[in-house]
Design a protein around this nucleic acid. Structure first.
Lengths: 249, 249
DNA sequence: CGATTCCTTGAAGGTTGTCAACGTTGGTGG
DNA sequence: CCACCAACGTTGACAACCTTCAAGGAATCG
């Protein structure tokens, strides 16, 4: 039912990026996405339990995955036991391409839940780069990753958007199978602070995150709070207009 | 003299990435870099004064540049007058490719100094993606950008490394034509704090940043300080060994 | 040299991390 | 069913870090 919308061509490019990517490349992007989805659709599928490591730091058993069901994340561990989560993958995401191009020596990709993936061998990467459509799409995809990293503070908004594209948001709420520790690792904060912030969001009736269920009530204000944390009030037309002309300090 | 080492084939891929990228792609990467450098070498060159905007948010006059001499940066401005610098470009860097693929609506690329660039029209991007070598190289390049963004706190180390590859480091020191305000914008901190931190680095004899000249004395400790700021002590074998086994919480 | 920008420093206050404790939940085995 | 355990969530007190506000000194450029 919802697999249909995931793989039947009404992809990310069509729905969201048309106006944003270079016009001359739009056709290639859409085409590349279709082709790649098609390849994965025909690829063997595998279901693995939570905690399974899909991509390891050492270059053994390199594969490419499309995440078909469930959540996964990229994890980087430090010798002292701490870890950070530079990337979160949801259903429909592709895994292993940045890795094929250039491995961060100490990253691995692990399943957060039991997940179903479709698997291709990494050998095909050169083939993909030999076709203009798929090459363009992969480059775009890698660029998207970066754009997403720049919006970490808007994590909830970003996840909501990505899940909505894939019909995984129902009645304004979605499932978030992350512990507060994992959220903290992703945002570079402490569990304690994440907990307090989530409480604040709840009290302010901006969003509720409880028992792995997220309900966003006031998207606008959430976005505002997130960006204020990082860079102070973008779009702050309501900041004292008398000071608006003040240069910078 | 030093242009030679920049453009005569002993490029980034050869020197630094051989062991790190996927073996099957290494040849394509090196080849793609050579071809792209060759194209820029044959392209018309332009010299513009400091402050010139090379890439604008609106999609007018889209071009691709190789920065031949001088520094430039990507700037994102907020309505309240603040700005951040998500990216810094040094001699040898390519500018405009992420933009061609997907424009951040409010970013522009500006020259920090008078710069010399070689210019290609953005029309050739589809052509570049049609060749396996150049397509692979571009995807790698876009991925590199992200990797660099993940190491912001090591800004000085990173710049040192990039400049060293291009023979722009002499006697352990290099030129850094950024104001403390620009450094602050890049790191997401305030000028005041950048100033105090630089003083600390000077007092600790780790690095000296003065009058746009940087001298790194103790790279190891600098790296340590930088990573500690973000994620606490990676590689901290010297942290109290009695507590080393303590799980996390 | 005058003016502007940049650098530097102090004081005060807000934000986030650390440490530590306790509550809650869910699973396991008696 | 209950006892127990382990992981997760929640909260308080305090410290460290970073920002804000403010002001004065130094460098640069016409």
């Amino acid at each position: 039912m919802r697999e249909a919308s995931l793989f039947q061509g009404c992809g990310e490019i069509d729905q969201f990026r048309r106006s944003r990517c270079h016009p001359a490349l739009y056709e290639d992007l859409a085409q590349g996405e279709r082709e790649l989805h098609q390849m994965f659709r025909e690829a063997p599928s595998r279901t693995v339990p939570a905690g399974t490591v899909l991509v390891t730091p050492d270059r053994q058993s390199q594969s490419l995955y499309m995440l078909h069901r469930g959540w996964a994340c990229r994890v980087r561990e430090w010798p002292d036991g701490r870890s950070i989560i530079p990337e979160i993958y949801v259903a429909g995401d592709l895994i292993g391409f940045e890795t094929a191009l250039r491995m961060r020596p100490d990253d691995e990709v692990a399943a957060i839940q039991p997940v179903t993936v479709q698997v291709l061998e990494a050998d095909i990467v050169p083939t993909l780069f030999a076709r203009r459509s798929t090459a363009t799409y992969l480059a775009w995809l890698i660029g998207e990753t970066q754009r997403r990293a720049e919006r970490r503070a808007e994590m909830l908004v970003d996840l909501h958007e990505r899940l909505r594209r894939r019909d995984l948001v129902t009645a304004g709420s979605f499932n978030l199978p992350l512990t507060q520790q994992q959220i903290a690792d992703h945002l570079g904060l402490t569990v304690v602070h994440v907990n307090r912030t989530l409480r604040l969001l709840r009290e302010e009736k901006v969003a509720i995150v409880d028992k792995h269920v997220v309900i966003l009530h006031d998207m606008t204000r959430l976005r505002l709070l997130a960006s204020r944390e990082l860079n102070d009030a973008p779009g702050a037309e309501d900041a004292a207009p008398a000071e608006a002309a003040k240069p910078r300090s």
